[in-house]
Every structure is written in C-alpha cells, then in structure tokens.
Simulated scan of single mutants.
Amino acid sequence: MPLFRYTRAGQEPPVPRRHTPLPWIALIALILGAAALAFAWLAGWIGRDRLTAQRFTDTIEATGPAHPGFRRAHSKGVCVGGWFSPSAQAPMLSSARVFSQQKVPVLGRLSIGGGDPHGADGNARVRSIALQLVGDDGQEWRMAMNSFPFFAVPTPEAFFEQTRAQLPDPATGKPDPQKMAALLARYPSARAFQQWAKSAPWTDSWANTTFNSVNSFWFTNAQGNQRAVRWRWQPQAPVAELDADARGRADADFLEQDLRRRLNNGPVRWNLVVSIAEPGDAVDDPSTPWPASRSEVMAGVLSLERMQSQEQGACGELNFDPLILPRGMRGSDDPVLAARSAIYSQSFNRRERERAAGAPAQARETAR
C-alpha cells in the first residue's frame, strides 16, 4: 500500500504520514547495549562476585609463586609420543575413527600435581596424563586424566571454594586449616578424597600408575546407541609402591628418570578400560564413583615409545581440553567438566601471552 493516496475531486489530499526513525534507533541501541553487556559479563567486568574462568584462574595463581610461561596446574612434566591401537570391541562403543583405524598417533604429557615446575616428584600425591589422539579423518580426541579415581567436590562452586581454602594466609604464609576443615565438613566427597590420599599406594613410576577420566562422557556407535561412560588407562607394568622414606630419599626428578630407563627397553603400555553407566549412576557428578560392578570394555592399548623435555617437545603447544572430542563422543552435562575446559583455555592464553612477551627460557616448559 502507498504511504498516501488522493481522495475524490474537490477534497484536499491527506498529509502524508512519515515514519520516524526513533523506534529503529532505539532498537539498534538496545541490541548494541545488550551485546556490550554480554561482553562485559563474559570478560568479568561486571558481576564481580560471579564465578568466571578468569576469576578461577586468578585464584589458582594466588595459591603459590608465579611461574610465567607455565601452566597454572600440573606445571611439571615431560612430553611423550607413541600410538593407540583400538581393540576389536572398541567400535561397539563409539563410531569415532580412533576406535576403528589400525593405529592412531598420540602426542601427550605425563605430569605431577601442583603449580611448581621444579617441585619434587616424591611430594606430589597426584599424577596425570594428557593425550591427543588424531584419527586419519582429522578428528581429535584430547583428554586430561588423573591418578585419583573421583573428584573431591561435586560442582565448580565447591571446586572454587576448595581452591580458596588453599590460599596462603598473609599472617602465616600457609593455608588456614580452619577453611579446609570447613570444606571437609561441608562435602563428604572431600573427606572421601582425603582418605584416598592417605591410603592409596604411591607407585614408583608413571608407568604403573592408573589414570582416570573422572568426568563422564557419552559415546555413540554407528548404530546410534548411546552410552554414558568413564574410562581409565590401566598400566600393564606391575605396581610397585614407595613408602614415605623411599620418597624422601628419591631424586626430585625420579619419575622422569624412571620413564627414560623404561623407554630404553621398549614401549610403556596401558590398556584403555571403558566403564559403562547403568540407570541411576551419577553421570553429571564427578565426585561420586560408579560401582566396581559396572560392565567394562577393553577398548585398546596405548604404547608410549619416546619422551622429550618440555622445552623441546611439542606437548607444550597444546591445550589438552577434555571437551575436544571426535564425532561419536561428547561431553556430559557435568558442570565441573565445562569448568575445566574454560579454565584450561584461560591458562593457555595467559602463558602464550607470557611466552610472546619473552618469558624466561626455563619458563617455556609448559604443562597441562
């Protein structure tokens, strides 16, 4: 319809109606304002009490001395490389190509817990493995796994509370024991984790340590069947324990030295064991272990054949984000899993900036 029209003869035509631009200007301003608000929210400029990856990473950094160029956690480790060979049963779990091709190249990293890149191996209760598997279709499976079998707390908020409890008190230079006691009183899973730390064996090698996914994931096979799963790398090397006296006498780098000796004699291997959830299992809560009676599939073998220092190896260039997954796998709705992914990204970006700004050469060792 035209904006105006003439009437019958003898009548004055109506005054044309003009559309004012004000409503459109207001709409555009509203959209731009909402975008700016969202950006500020994500950047942490507003809602200062909101838990963001930036705030979380700041708190992790505050638990100890700064080490520019290093990852904020699991700061000490070595690069490793080798192959993954899937089993005949693996394709029943997932349609991911890494479960059907003969051999999958692996780049990874073995590390210890803590933020000190020069810490003593015998003092680290937690050990970790981070891996990148790349299928011949270009799809990647990245994972970051730990020696503990479950997470200490169930949510990112509780994880943040746990991290804050580890901050040194300015008066003593050490964490306030009352804050940790309050955390243990609030979360039964934290008490269970503490019991694991006291009673689980301290193995004498990365090679005989079991590494757990801790978080849950969903696998979908070629037939469209979906399963909630967790997995672990079960060592083929026999377990040998170290008591406290032996740990105290051991060299600060004994894990690296041991791995080098073992690799000189051939590959070091782990079996990939996938546990399948049953109805009622805690898929989205990493602090709740699944019963040992759950069905398991031996899905393949990891063979590590070589190692390099972090200065020379390629593992330092990778963010081992556990939500980088191939088709046929996806993350669960576990909020701790999403938080880990966001914090890893924040840590990676910070250390890349530090390295670009000329962080010391020794700080270019990077960790998960």
Results as ranks from 00 to 15, higher is better:
residue 4 F to G: 01
residue 8 R to E: 10
residue 12 E to L: 12
residue 14 P to R: 01
residue 19 H to V: 13
residue 23 P to S: 10
residue 26 A to Q: 00
residue 29 A to H: 01
residue 34 A to T: 10
residue 35 A to I: 15
residue 36 A to Q: 02
residue 38 A to K: 03
residue 40 A to L: 15
residue 44 G to A: 14
residue 46 I to C: 15
residue 47 G to E: 08
residue 51 L to R: 04
residue 59 T to L: 01
residue 66 A to W: 03
residue 66 A to N: 01
residue 67 H to E: 09
residue 68 P to V: 09
residue 72 R to S: 08
residue 81 G to K: 04
residue 90 A to Y: 10
residue 99 F to H: 08
residue 100 S to M: 01
residue 102 Q to P: 11
residue 103 K to M: 10
residue 109 R to Q: 10
residue 110 L to P: 04
residue 112 I to S: 03
residue 117 P to S: 12
residue 122 G to N: 08
residue 128 S to C: 11
residue 132 Q to G: 05
residue 132 Q to E: 13
residue 137 D to E: 15
residue 138 G to H: 08
residue 153 V to P: 05
residue 165 A to H: 06
residue 180 M to R: 01
residue 195 Q to N: 12
residue 196 W to Q: 08
residue 204 D to L: 03
residue 205 S to E: 06
residue 207 A to F: 02
residue 212 N to P: 03
residue 223 Q to I: 06
residue 230 R to W: 05
residue 245 D to I: 07
residue 255 L to T: 10
residue 259 L to S: 05
residue 262 R to I: 00
residue 263 L to D: 05
residue 266 G to Y: 07
residue 267 P to M: 08
residue 270 W to H: 05
residue 272 L to D: 07
residue 273 V to E: 06
residue 284 D to V: 11
residue 286 P to D: 06
residue 292 A to E: 07
residue 298 M to F: 08
residue 299 A to G: 07
residue 302 L to D: 06
residue 316 G to V: 14
residue 320 F to A: 00
residue 325 L to Q: 04
residue 325 L to G: 04
residue 337 L to D: 01
residue 342 A to S: 13
residue 342 A to I: 10
residue 352 E to A: 11
residue 356 A to N: 14
residue 359 A to V: 14
